[in-house]
Amino acid sequence: MMNFLHRLASPPHFYRISGRLLPWLGAAFALLLVAGLVGGLYLAPPDYQQGDSFRIMYIHVPSAWMSLFIYMVMAGAGLIVLVWRIKLAELVAVHSAPIGASFTFLALVTGSLWGKPMWGTWWVWDARLTSELILLFLYLGVIGLYNAIEDKRAAARAVAILALVGVVNIPIIHYSVVWWNTLHQGPTVTRFDKPAIATSMLIPLLIMALAFNLYYFIALLMRLRLALLEREAGARWVANLLAEEEA
């Protein structure tokens, strides 16, 4: 297993294997996406309280899940960077950030679009939306730090530290925001809380969550391939690879 991982972490192998994997992942993503969309937009019945507006959930909730999940992946990769200094982990930590920021942005925008018909305004200082907004700032900090440091390997290690600090802080920030929210917010908070969700509504949600996970994997792989090719442009394996494709 370790042997396999080591081989995978070598750039030529990684480039080759990921290239072969991508079409399959893309097909699986497309399949899940179509299933999730049909289930969420067409098959699931309208919510008895929220009508058809609840269908925004199929974007909003998986995006919010992914925004947290990707931060965890970033912090995990950051730990690997600081302990074992594996180059591939550096790339994973660094290139997860823009994808995570995108999902955070999506969760915020769709939350706002969902909130308008439910709350009557585009924005309320709801605990979850507020935490998500702060999470976006954390992502922007990571991206800003990486772009500001010129030596990219040092930048990746700085990002690793920041991601680990962030991951320790996220629960503290979240619970303090929840606590603050219960003091300042009236009964609107409970609007989003659905006591029980019908199975026909839940299954598309899980499918969409799976699809978004696959999407993250695909987007990450594409960024890693690009980063490897750019960084190792002068290496022999790149020349061999291109010559092979030419033939």
């Binding site: 702060i134 700032f137 900090g141 802080n169 606590w179």
Partner: peptide, 15 residues
């Protein structure tokens, strides 16, 4: 950049 990195982490203290 420093303010972008640090201010979000100050939220719990502020609250």
């Amino acid at each position: 950049l420093l303010s972008l990195l640090v201010l979000p982490l100050y939220v719990p203290v502020l609250i």
